[in-house]
Computed example of a mutant assay.
Amino acid sequence: MLLAVVVSAWAGATTMALLLGAAAVARVVAPAPGPVALTVRSRPVDVVVLVLLAVGVGILAQLIPEA
């Protein structure tokens, strides 16, 4: 991500976690068939995977020292 290069790795990782969370919310509330990029698997699988990725990246982002 350009943000990670221009600003900091912490900002890039935090932004990525927020975007993954937003994608999970979009997958939950979007009517069928929903966004093509987000409707590869069943809705529950997509939401669980996106939430787990958002939480994981968010935790890792907090471990990166801010510069």
Rank of each mutant, 00 (worst) to 15 (best):
L3P: 09
L3W: 05
L3H: 14
L3A: 15
A4S: 15
V5N: 09
V7S: 11
S8K: 08
S8W: 14
S8Y: 14
A9Q: 11
W10R: 09
A11F: 02
G12F: 06
G12S: 11
A13P: 10
A13T: 12
A13K: 13
T14V: 11
T14D: 01
T14A: 07
T14W: 05
T15V: 08
T15R: 04
M16L: 14
M16G: 06
M16P: 02
A17Y: 05
A17H: 00
L18Q: 00
L18K: 06
L19T: 03
L20C: 01
L20F: 02
L20G: 02
L20N: 00
L20S: 07
G21F: 01
G21S: 01
G21A: 04
A22C: 15
A22P: 10
A22W: 15
A23D: 09
A24C: 09
A24K: 03
A24W: 03
V25P: 08
V25S: 14
V25T: 14
A26R: 10
R27F: 03
R27P: 05
R27V: 01
V28T: 11
V28P: 13
V29Y: 15
A30S: 12
P31N: 06
P31G: 08
P31L: 13
A32I: 12
A32L: 06
A32E: 04
P33R: 06
P33I: 13
G34L: 08
G34H: 05
P35E: 14
P35A: 12
V36N: 11
A37F: 15
A37R: 09
A37T: 03
L38E: 01
L38V: 05
T39V: 11
T39N: 13
V40P: 13
V40M: 13
R41S: 15
R41W: 15
R41V: 14
R41H: 05
S42R: 12
S42M: 04
S42K: 10
R43Y: 04
R43I: 10
R43T: 14
P44L: 03
P44V: 04
V45G: 11
V45C: 06
V45K: 12
D46E: 13
D46M: 10
V47Y: 07
V48A: 07
V48G: 03
V48W: 14
V49H: 03
V49D: 10
V49R: 00
L50D: 13
V51L: 09
V51C: 07
L52H: 02
L52R: 03
L52C: 04
L52F: 03
L53G: 06
L53D: 08
V55D: 00
V55R: 01
V55P: 01
G56R: 02
G56Q: 05
V57I: 10
V57Q: 09
V57G: 10
G58F: 02
G58S: 08
G58M: 02
I59V: 06
Q62V: 12
Q62C: 07
Q62G: 07
L63Q: 05
L63N: 04
I64D: 00
I64P: 00
I64C: 00
I64L: 00
P65S: 02
P65Y: 05
E66M: 09
E66T: 09
A67L: 06
A67T: 05
